Simulated assay, not measured.
Amino acid sequence: MTTTPSILVGVDGSLASLHALDWATALAKKCGASLTIACSYSLPTFAAASLDGGYAALDDSTIQEGARMVLSSAAERVTAHGVPVSAQIASGDPAGALVELSQGHNLVVVGTRGRSGFAERILGTVSSALPAHSACPVVVVPGRDLKEDEPLPAITPVNRIIVGVDGSDSAHGALHKAVHFAQLFDAELVAVTGVPVTSGSGILAWLPAAVDHEQVLKDIEGGLNTIIDAVEDENPGMTIRRIVLDGTGAELLTEFSQAADLLVVGSRGRGGFAGLLLGSTSQAVLHHSQCPVLIINKKADQAEPLDVSPAQNQQPE
């Protein structure tokens, strides 16, 4: 018996979360998946201590009702596209709630900007909790330029996928997930390796000046070809473009995001992609990418992948 794939979406009523919801809805429609939309809330820690009204008036039931309204509106948005949807309210920190709810789902989708919860908590200093600890892959959909007085942009079809590869186990898992998504969308797949050779910083900064940097790049290109050749052999009929450039992973992925429809990265890497989702490099990619970013951690690498039936083999609308 086949289990229906399920996508979890964090919503908070903001434009960014609605845009992420639209992206997830289009994907769910393509895959024949169902959506679970979740809204998390928490009371201010000093609410109960207020003696003169103020936050004391915002009791648990009042905030729950606000969360229910957010979920009801989001559910109507999904139902309009014919996608099965269920809703869930969770109390506590949004990132922690989504990590817990991620078990039993195939994918989690969130936006980059939110209302008092998702943006700063999921993409702030403590934000790596969701991408690093989720039980399934996480997609972060950018929403930085959305305006209240303008309609949300249409969802862009996924025609080109960029994956960051650096030879690490994490990047290897990301590469295999990128292959799956490329097959899912019938999209072009491009593997990118970033090595800061001439920048004077990074993993090659210690090399003597006499070292042939061009040869270093060629050697790394040879290593990338070995990895990609093996993956292509495992997936007959698939061709993966390979690109090796001088630069850091954050710089290159951010630049490539302008010409990509989906970036795929691992949560821990080496070289140009070292520390993704753990420090400033990851924050740069997540905050500045022009397209959705799919993050794979070790646990997510073992999650059941989304699949698509022949009857639904069409690009998201």
Score class of each variant (00 low, 15 high):
residue 282 S to R: 06
residue 160 R to D: 01
residue 311 A to C: 15
residue 269 G to I: 04
residue 293 V to F: 03
residue 263 L to M: 01
residue 245 L to A: 13
residue 237 G to C: 02
residue 82 G to P: 01
residue 294 L to E: 10
residue 268 R to L: 14
residue 162 I to C: 07
residue 292 P to K: 09
residue 308 V to P: 04
residue 216 V to R: 09
residue 290 Q to R: 14
residue 246 D to H: 02
residue 131 P to F: 06
residue 54 G to C: 06
residue 64 Q to M: 10
residue 20 A to S: 04
residue 157 P to D: 06
residue 291 C to H: 03
residue 137 P to C: 03
residue 63 I to W: 04
residue 136 C to Q: 11
residue 11 V to Y: 08
residue 69 M to F: 14
residue 7 I to H: 05
residue 25 T to F: 05
residue 190 V to C: 08
residue 150 E to Y: 06
residue 88 Q to N: 10
residue 28 A to T: 02
residue 95 A to C: 06
residue 265 V to D: 00
residue 183 Q to P: 09
residue 138 V to A: 08
residue 253 L to V: 00
residue 143 G to E: 00
residue 67 A to H: 09
residue 181 F to R: 00
residue 294 L to I: 11
residue 220 I to K: 07
residue 25 T to I: 07
residue 207 L to V: 08
residue 15 L to R: 15
residue 229 D to Q: 14
residue 148 E to W: 02
residue 258 Q to C: 07
residue 7 I to L: 05
residue 160 R to Y: 01
residue 6 S to C: 11
residue 285 V to E: 06
residue 30 K to L: 13
residue 131 P to I: 00
residue 308 V to K: 02
residue 55 Y to F: 11
residue 47 A to E: 03
residue 292 P to H: 08
residue 172 H to V: 11
residue 165 V to T: 04
residue 119 A to V: 08
residue 231 V to G: 04
residue 166 D to M: 08
residue 106 N to Q: 11
residue 220 I to H: 02
residue 304 E to K: 10
residue 233 D to K: 15
residue 235 N to S: 07
residue 79 T to M: 10
residue 118 F to Y: 12
residue 70 V to Y: 09
residue 263 L to C: 01
residue 57 A to P: 05
residue 36 T to K: 11
residue 131 P to H: 04
residue 75 A to F: 07
residue 199 S to F: 13
residue 290 Q to P: 09
residue 205 A to K: 09
residue 85 V to K: 03
residue 160 R to L: 01
residue 274 A to C: 14
residue 258 Q to I: 01
residue 6 S to Q: 13
residue 39 C to I: 07
residue 304 E to S: 10
residue 112 T to L: 00
residue 246 D to Q: 02
residue 18 L to M: 15
residue 271 G to A: 11
residue 240 I to M: 11
residue 119 A to Y: 01
residue 290 Q to K: 14
residue 305 P to A: 02
residue 21 L to H: 04
residue 61 S to A: 15
residue 221 E to W: 03
residue 200 G to C: 12
residue 122 I to D: 00
residue 121 R to D: 07
residue 171 A to S: 11
